[in-house]
Amino acid sequence: MAATSPSARSTPELHLAQDPEADAVLSKDAFALIVGMLLDQQFPMERAFQGPAKILERFGTLDPGRIATADPGEFADLCATPPAIHRYGRSMAARVQALAAVVEGEYGGRAERIWTEATSGADLLERLVALPGFGDRKARIFASLLGKQLGVRPDGWREAIGPYAQEGTHMSIADVVDQESLDKVRSWKKQQKAAARQ
């Protein structure tokens, strides 16, 4: 059984960036959403998810084909221009282009096909882990985000994802729906880091 299409939930109203314009981009554009997840490392969560809107404003489009074939130096410049899309704007620009190339080449430029065509939770994770810049943990968090906020729940998705898919948690960006939940996720992460140091 294929994953439930995000369209079944109509247009989702995401609040990951804590910025109305940036969140509108994430809610309407599947590639923007996956780029936001790519940027979510070594950088504040909400600022990472503001990155796609910055790219759209500066580059003029989030079309994966156009991004993949853009001049790497020029694209890196626009990503690194303050306020940059990430603390490491230039290196992340290269990752965004690599991700765009895969989405264009393997999914016909339609990022949502990564999840709408997944046949199971395990298949979804496999597709996500195969993306540039996505490891196992990032793939599980993004799959959890898809399931919790977009209704993308292929067979066995909770079992495949693990703890991040549990309801009532505040462990990752998948659980962020407003400022309060963002604060709870940030608090949980601080607790985990403190426990790791003991």
Rank of each mutant, 00 (worst) to 15 (best):
S5G: 13
P6W: 15
A8W: 05
R9T: 13
R9K: 10
E13H: 14
L14W: 11
H15Q: 11
A17E: 01
P20K: 07
E21D: 07
E21F: 07
L26Q: 09
L39V: 08
A53M: 05
I55L: 10
R58I: 10
R58W: 13
R58V: 07
T69E: 14
D71A: 03
G73P: 09
G73T: 04
F75Y: 07
A76N: 03
T81P: 01
P82L: 08
P82M: 12
H86I: 04
R87V: 12
Y88L: 15
M92C: 00
A93S: 10
Q97C: 06
A100D: 15
V103M: 10
G105H: 06
G109F: 02
R110D: 15
R113H: 14
E117V: 05
A118T: 03
T119M: 11
G121V: 06
A122K: 14
E126D: 11
R127P: 02
D136G: 02
D136S: 03
R137A: 02
K138Y: 02
K138N: 07
F142C: 09
F142G: 04
F142M: 14
A143P: 05
L146F: 13
Q149F: 09
V152A: 09
R153L: 11
R158N: 03
A160R: 08
I161T: 07
A165C: 02
Q166G: 00
E167H: 01
V176R: 05
E180T: 11
K184H: 11
S187N: 13
K189Y: 08
Q191P: 01
A195L: 13
A195H: 06
